[in-house]
Design a protein around this nucleic acid. Sequence first.
RNA 1: GGAGAGGUGGCAGAGUGGUUGAAUGUGGCGGUCUCGAAAACCGUUGUGCGGGUAACUGCACCGAGGGUUCGAAUCCCUCCUUCUCCGCCA
Length: 420
Amino acid sequence: MLDLKFIRENIGLVRENIKNKNESTQVDSILELDEKRRKVIQEVESLKNIRNVVSKEIAELKKNKQDADDKIASMKDVSDKIKLLDEELRLIEAEIEQVVLRIPNMTGPDVPVGKSAADNKIVRQWGNPKIQAIKKNHIEIARNLDIIDFERGGKVSGSGFAFYKGKGAKLERALINFMIDFHTDNHGYTELLPPFLVNRNSMLGTGQLPKMAEDMYHATEDDMFLIPTAEVPLTNFHSDEMLSTPDLPIKYCGYSPCFRREAGSYGKDVRGFLRVHQFNKVEMVNFVRPEDSWQRLEDLTNEAEDIVKALGLHYRLLLLCSGDTSFSSSMTYDIEVWSPGEENWLEVSSCSNFTDFQARRANIRFRPEPSAKPEFVHTLNGSGLATSRIMVALLETYLNEDGSVSVPSCLVPYTGFDKI
RNA sequence: GGAGAGGUGGCAGAGUGGUUGAAUGUGGCGGUCUCGAAAACCGUUGUGCGGGUAACUGCACCGAGGGUUCGAAUCCCUCCUUCUCCGCCA
């Protein structure tokens, strides 16, 4: 979330940012509420001061075995007033919190203002599009090879779920292991294998709640949520902590399945693996000093790109415009790989700088100097990568004319076979 | 799920309802001593929110949230969590 002081002093910028991000949060009530809040604080605190002073006098009188009944009686009234004002303050602050939690992060200085995906900026492209001899999409390829079973996924769970089978399952595991090893061996990451269910507080910490509540699978009995991305447990790993400064930057990567309800999306763009309710992803999360976060975003993005290059997939890098930049993010790069079967770009990674937005929500701090005040760290994360759409691009890119699919050489040590 | 015992500063660990933001130890920082270091000694050392240009000052915080009281780290209730034991289960 944003700092209340920042909102107070920059209300115009905050309004403009909300508009640029295509959000509709109403912030008009904030200034008035904030003023009311400070007025009540001053009132109640001066009463509490009286109470504290008189209580000491009462203690003194009692110690000397003197009568304190008058003072005690007069304090009764003060105490009642304090209770009323405290309650009023609590309500005001709850109201402020409800608004502040719904205000999106400020976009960074380099983010182009724009409405939709059409306004995103293409930063660079790598590789060349593969031309298939006979056009086939991943669903046909997978069905022919009997490596993915969408029908039984639908029967057992519902549409948007699938079974990986035989070499398909092994290829999926190979992708996950390859990507984790790549990050830990080449980029200095520490692996975390996180819980897949998290509590409400964690979902608030990274900003999925309250805004995205409808997209979450919610276990109501225990008020727990299936994670939509490993970003949630990996970032909240350090919630409510004071990070040891020499340890920064901290870099974690981790595999998890990701669960998304994707409420209300059906049709051509969602068939097969293009949009599913459960997919696998390796996520990278960084905790850095504030002055380092913009450079780290560039480096983090490169780390994700390195994986796509290793897999030999044609891709492009996009800088998202304000309207496409997510609620919690300040600036986001998307990596999209080319799907020869769909003849379309598929998002496989999103790399974002969240500045201090998540750190303030999740209370993750560090001390810049040993004697200095604690500050919020900056958090970043990037997919590295989401496997289901990578699988689409792999099958369609490495399809041979005889219907078999070759395995990219970097994966062969993990699969034990070079062809499906 | 049941029974019991805990949760106090960076860490360890005291704390009879009334100068307790909190003893003591330890760690950190500064200093004395030293060529330098160690030891010893002295000093200092939490966070958040208000007010003030500032020096400074008020309030809150002892797992979380309520309650009792003129006054709560201390008493009561609910919840979370850790440990020990029992039960159930993969």
